[in-house]
Design a protein around this nucleic acid. Structure first.
Lengths: 112, 112
DNA sequence: ACTTGAGATGAAGAGTTTCGCAAGTCATGT
DNA sequence: ACATGACTTGCGAAACTCTTCATCTCAAGT
Protein backbone atom coordinates (compact mmCIF):
# COMPACT_ATOMS: atom_id res chain seq x y z
CA UNK A 1 0.00 0.00 0.00
CA UNK A 2 1.44 3.31 -1.12
CA UNK A 3 0.09 5.76 1.41
CA UNK A 4 0.13 4.43 4.97
CA UNK A 5 -3.29 3.09 5.83
CA UNK A 6 -4.05 5.33 8.80
CA UNK A 7 -3.13 8.31 6.72
CA UNK A 8 -5.77 7.33 4.17
CA UNK A 9 -8.33 6.75 6.90
CA UNK A 10 -7.59 10.08 8.52
CA UNK A 11 -7.83 11.77 5.15
CA UNK A 12 -11.20 10.20 4.66
CA UNK A 13 -12.61 11.25 8.01
CA UNK A 14 -11.24 14.72 7.49
CA UNK A 15 -13.49 14.95 4.46
CA UNK A 16 -16.48 14.53 6.75
CA UNK A 17 -15.18 17.13 9.16
CA UNK A 18 -17.11 20.09 7.84
CA UNK A 19 -20.69 21.08 8.56
CA UNK A 20 -21.65 21.81 4.96
CA UNK A 21 -20.17 18.55 3.74
CA UNK A 22 -22.01 16.57 6.38
CA UNK A 23 -25.28 18.20 5.42
CA UNK A 24 -24.66 17.56 1.75
CA UNK A 25 -24.04 13.89 2.40
CA UNK A 26 -27.11 13.63 4.58
CA UNK A 27 -29.30 15.25 1.96
CA UNK A 28 -27.82 13.15 -0.82
CA UNK A 29 -28.25 9.96 1.16
CA UNK A 30 -31.98 10.66 1.09
CA UNK A 31 -32.09 11.31 -2.63
CA UNK A 32 -30.20 12.95 -5.48
CA UNK A 33 -30.17 16.73 -5.49
CA UNK A 34 -29.38 19.40 -8.03
CA UNK A 35 -26.99 22.07 -6.82
CA UNK A 36 -29.69 24.71 -6.63
CA UNK A 37 -31.77 22.37 -4.46
CA UNK A 38 -28.89 21.93 -2.07
CA UNK A 39 -28.45 25.66 -2.10
CA UNK A 40 -32.01 26.15 -0.90
CA UNK A 41 -31.56 23.78 2.02
CA UNK A 42 -28.09 24.80 3.11
CA UNK A 43 -27.47 28.44 3.83
CA UNK A 44 -24.13 29.09 2.24
CA UNK A 45 -22.75 31.06 -0.71
CA UNK A 46 -23.00 29.28 -4.05
CA UNK A 47 -19.28 29.36 -4.56
CA UNK A 48 -18.68 27.90 -1.15
CA UNK A 49 -21.13 25.10 -1.81
CA UNK A 50 -19.38 24.41 -5.06
CA UNK A 51 -16.04 24.21 -3.28
CA UNK A 52 -17.39 21.72 -0.77
CA UNK A 53 -18.96 19.67 -3.54
CA UNK A 54 -15.58 19.70 -5.19
CA UNK A 55 -13.98 18.24 -2.08
CA UNK A 56 -16.56 15.44 -1.95
CA UNK A 57 -16.15 14.82 -5.66
CA UNK A 58 -12.38 14.56 -5.40
CA UNK A 59 -12.63 11.98 -2.64
CA UNK A 60 -15.11 10.08 -4.79
CA UNK A 61 -17.88 10.12 -2.22
CA UNK A 62 -20.27 11.78 -4.65
CA UNK A 63 -20.66 12.00 -8.41
CA UNK A 64 -22.19 14.73 -10.56
CA UNK A 65 -24.16 14.58 -13.79
CA UNK A 66 -25.28 17.43 -15.91
CA UNK A 67 -29.05 17.32 -16.56
CA UNK A 68 -29.67 20.12 -19.01
CA UNK A 69 -29.15 23.38 -17.22
CA UNK A 70 -28.77 21.80 -13.78
CA UNK A 71 -26.04 19.63 -12.25
CA UNK A 72 -27.30 16.74 -10.17
CA UNK A 73 -25.23 15.16 -7.43
CA UNK A 74 -25.53 11.61 -6.10
CA UNK A 75 -23.89 9.55 -3.38
CA UNK A 76 -21.27 7.32 -4.99
CA UNK A 77 -20.80 4.91 -2.09
CA UNK A 78 -24.06 3.81 -0.44
CA UNK A 79 -22.22 2.68 2.71
CA UNK A 80 -21.92 6.32 3.64
CA UNK A 81 -25.36 6.07 5.19
CA UNK A 82 -24.10 3.49 7.69
CA UNK A 83 -21.23 5.71 8.59
CA UNK A 84 -23.43 8.71 9.22
CA UNK A 85 -25.68 6.53 11.33
CA UNK A 86 -22.79 5.21 13.38
CA UNK A 87 -21.65 8.78 13.92
CA UNK A 88 -25.09 9.80 15.07
CA UNK A 89 -25.20 6.93 17.52
CA UNK A 90 -21.90 7.92 19.10
CA UNK A 91 -22.95 11.53 19.34
CA UNK A 92 -26.13 10.49 21.10
CA UNK A 93 -24.09 8.38 23.45
CA UNK A 94 -21.80 11.28 24.27
CA UNK A 95 -24.68 13.66 24.77
CA UNK A 96 -26.38 11.19 27.12
CA UNK A 97 -23.19 10.79 29.16
CA UNK A 98 -22.86 14.54 29.46
CA UNK A 99 -26.40 15.17 30.57
CA UNK A 100 -26.03 12.41 33.14
CA UNK A 101 -22.93 14.15 34.46
CA UNK A 102 -24.97 17.32 34.55
CA UNK A 103 -27.64 15.60 36.62
CA UNK A 104 -25.09 14.23 39.07
CA UNK A 105 -23.49 17.61 39.52
CA UNK A 106 -26.88 19.15 40.15
CA UNK A 107 -27.51 16.72 43.01
CA UNK A 108 -24.85 18.01 45.37
CA UNK A 109 -22.27 15.46 44.29
CA UNK A 110 -21.35 12.93 47.02
CA UNK A 111 -17.68 12.66 46.11
CA UNK A 112 -15.10 14.67 44.21
CA UNK B 1 -29.91 22.21 20.88
CA UNK B 2 -27.33 24.94 21.36
CA UNK B 3 -24.79 24.19 18.69
CA UNK B 4 -26.31 23.33 15.31
CA UNK B 5 -26.37 19.61 14.89
CA UNK B 6 -24.27 19.37 11.75
CA UNK B 7 -21.67 21.51 13.42
CA UNK B 8 -21.44 18.98 16.24
CA UNK B 9 -21.24 16.12 13.79
CA UNK B 10 -18.55 17.83 11.77
CA UNK B 11 -16.63 18.56 14.94
CA UNK B 12 -16.81 14.91 15.83
CA UNK B 13 -15.56 13.63 12.48
CA UNK B 14 -12.82 16.21 12.52
CA UNK B 15 -11.55 14.54 15.67
CA UNK B 16 -11.02 11.36 13.67
CA UNK B 17 -9.24 13.22 10.89
CA UNK B 18 -5.72 12.65 12.06
CA UNK B 19 -3.54 9.57 11.50
CA UNK B 20 -2.26 9.36 15.06
CA UNK B 21 -5.73 9.72 16.52
CA UNK B 22 -7.10 7.00 14.26
CA UNK B 23 -4.33 4.66 15.30
CA UNK B 24 -4.87 5.43 18.94
CA UNK B 25 -8.56 4.64 18.66
CA UNK B 26 -7.85 1.45 16.77
CA UNK B 27 -5.36 0.29 19.36
CA UNK B 28 -7.63 1.22 22.24
CA UNK B 29 -10.60 -0.51 20.66
CA UNK B 30 -8.57 -3.74 20.93
CA UNK B 31 -7.63 -3.19 24.55
CA UNK B 32 -6.60 -0.52 27.04
CA UNK B 33 -3.09 0.82 26.63
CA UNK B 34 -0.73 2.80 28.79
CA UNK B 35 0.78 5.84 27.10
CA UNK B 36 4.22 4.25 26.85
CA UNK B 37 2.65 1.25 25.12
CA UNK B 38 1.00 3.48 22.55
CA UNK B 39 4.31 5.21 22.14
CA UNK B 40 5.95 1.93 21.19
CA UNK B 41 3.36 1.18 18.52
CA UNK B 42 2.96 4.64 17.04
CA UNK B 43 6.04 6.43 15.85
CA UNK B 44 5.55 9.93 17.07
CA UNK B 45 7.14 12.27 19.63
CA UNK B 46 5.90 11.75 23.18
CA UNK B 47 4.61 15.26 23.48
CA UNK B 48 2.78 14.98 20.20
CA UNK B 49 1.13 11.78 21.35
CA UNK B 50 0.12 13.53 24.52
CA UNK B 51 -1.45 16.34 22.51
CA UNK B 52 -3.46 13.94 20.41
CA UNK B 53 -4.57 12.07 23.50
CA UNK B 54 -5.64 15.41 24.88
CA UNK B 55 -7.82 16.01 21.84
CA UNK B 56 -9.48 12.62 22.22
CA UNK B 57 -9.92 13.17 25.93
CA UNK B 58 -11.54 16.56 25.43
CA UNK B 59 -14.07 15.13 22.97
CA UNK B 60 -14.79 12.38 25.52
CA UNK B 61 -13.93 9.55 23.17
CA UNK B 62 -11.33 8.17 25.58
CA UNK B 63 -10.71 8.31 29.31
CA UNK B 64 -7.47 8.09 31.27
CA UNK B 65 -6.65 6.56 34.64
CA UNK B 66 -3.43 6.77 36.50
CA UNK B 67 -2.09 3.34 37.44
CA UNK B 68 0.90 4.04 39.65
CA UNK B 69 3.62 5.47 37.44
CA UNK B 70 1.74 4.90 34.18
CA UNK B 71 -1.39 6.44 32.70
CA UNK B 72 -3.78 4.00 31.06
CA UNK B 73 -6.20 5.07 28.34
CA UNK B 74 -9.49 3.39 27.45
CA UNK B 75 -12.21 3.88 24.87
CA UNK B 76 -15.12 5.69 26.48
CA UNK B 77 -17.73 4.93 23.83
CA UNK B 78 -17.66 1.33 22.58
CA UNK B 79 -19.64 2.27 19.44
CA UNK B 80 -16.43 3.75 18.07
CA UNK B 81 -15.53 0.29 16.84
CA UNK B 82 -18.56 0.25 14.55
CA UNK B 83 -17.63 3.61 13.20
CA UNK B 84 -14.07 2.58 12.41
CA UNK B 85 -15.44 -0.52 10.75
CA UNK B 86 -17.88 1.46 8.63
CA UNK B 87 -15.02 3.73 7.61
CA UNK B 88 -12.89 0.77 6.63
CA UNK B 89 -15.71 -0.62 4.52
CA UNK B 90 -16.12 2.60 2.59
CA UNK B 91 -12.41 2.92 2.05
CA UNK B 92 -12.34 -0.61 0.67
CA UNK B 93 -15.22 0.26 -1.59
CA UNK B 94 -13.44 3.33 -2.90
CA UNK B 95 -10.20 1.46 -3.43
CA UNK B 96 -12.03 -1.25 -5.36
CA UNK B 97 -13.69 1.33 -7.60
CA UNK B 98 -10.35 2.92 -8.30
CA UNK B 99 -8.53 -0.27 -9.15
CA UNK B 100 -11.35 -1.19 -11.48
CA UNK B 101 -10.90 2.13 -13.21
CA UNK B 102 -7.21 1.34 -13.34
CA UNK B 103 -7.90 -2.00 -15.01
CA UNK B 104 -10.15 -0.40 -17.60
CA UNK B 105 -7.58 2.20 -18.44
CA UNK B 106 -4.93 -0.48 -18.81
CA UNK B 107 -7.01 -2.29 -21.45
CA UNK B 108 -6.63 0.31 -24.16
CA UNK B 109 -9.82 2.07 -23.31
CA UNK B 110 -12.50 1.84 -26.01
CA UNK B 111 -13.92 5.29 -25.48
CA UNK B 112 -12.86 8.54 -23.90
C1' DA C 1 15.28 15.45 50.19
C1' DC C 2 16.79 14.08 45.37
C1' DT C 3 16.59 11.85 41.13
C1' DT C 4 14.41 9.66 37.47
C1' DG C 5 10.84 8.04 34.35
C1' DA C 6 6.19 8.91 32.55
C1' DG C 7 3.05 12.28 30.89
C1' DA C 8 0.88 16.89 30.39
C1' DT C 9 0.88 21.61 29.03
C1' DG C 10 1.98 26.20 26.76
C1' DA C 11 3.66 28.70 23.14
C1' DA C 12 5.46 29.62 18.50
C1' DG C 13 6.34 28.72 13.53
C1' DA C 14 4.91 26.28 9.52
C1' DG C 15 1.36 24.55 6.96
C1' DT C 16 -3.50 23.87 5.69
C1' DT C 17 -8.50 25.17 5.40
C1' DT C 18 -12.18 28.14 4.81
C1' DC C 19 -14.87 31.92 2.81
C1' DG C 20 -16.28 35.52 -0.16
C1' DC C 21 -15.37 37.94 -4.35
C1' DA C 22 -14.62 38.46 -9.16
C1' DA C 23 -14.36 36.21 -13.32
C1' DG C 24 -15.27 32.17 -16.26
C1' DT C 25 -17.97 28.21 -18.57
C1' DC C 26 -22.03 25.99 -20.35
C1' DA C 27 -26.73 25.12 -21.82
C1' DT C 28 -31.27 27.22 -22.70
C1' DG C 29 -34.57 30.59 -24.11
C1' DT C 30 -35.24 34.89 -27.18
C1' DA D 1 -25.88 36.29 -31.68
C1' DC D 2 -27.14 37.54 -26.90
C1' DA D 3 -28.84 37.41 -22.44
C1' DT D 4 -29.69 34.67 -18.44
C1' DG D 5 -29.65 31.27 -14.90
C1' DA D 6 -26.83 27.57 -13.00
C1' DC D 7 -22.52 26.26 -11.60
C1' DT D 8 -17.34 26.24 -11.23
C1' DT D 9 -12.74 28.13 -10.58
C1' DG D 10 -8.78 31.10 -8.96
C1' DC D 11 -7.34 34.00 -5.60
C1' DG D 12 -6.09 36.24 -1.25
C1' DA D 13 -7.00 37.23 3.75
C1' DA D 14 -8.40 35.33 8.09
C1' DA D 15 -8.85 31.33 10.96
C1' DC D 16 -7.49 27.05 12.32
C1' DT D 17 -4.34 22.73 12.96
C1' DC D 18 0.04 20.37 13.53
C1' DT D 19 4.45 19.70 15.34
C1' DT D 20 8.22 20.67 18.19
C1' DC D 21 10.61 22.70 22.07
C1' DA D 22 10.98 24.04 26.71
C1' DT D 23 8.86 23.69 30.94
C1' DC D 24 6.11 21.46 34.52
C1' DT D 25 3.81 17.85 37.50
C1' DC D 26 3.40 13.49 39.64
C1' DA D 27 4.75 9.09 41.63
C1' DA D 28 8.38 5.63 42.77
C1' DG D 29 12.80 4.42 44.12
C1' DT D 30 17.24 5.67 46.79
Amino acid sequence: MGVPLYQAKAEFFKTLGHPARIRILELLSERDHAVHELLEKISIEPSNLSQQLGVLRRTQLVTSNRAGGAVVYSIAVPEVRDLLLAGRRILTQLAAAQSQLGAELAVDLPES
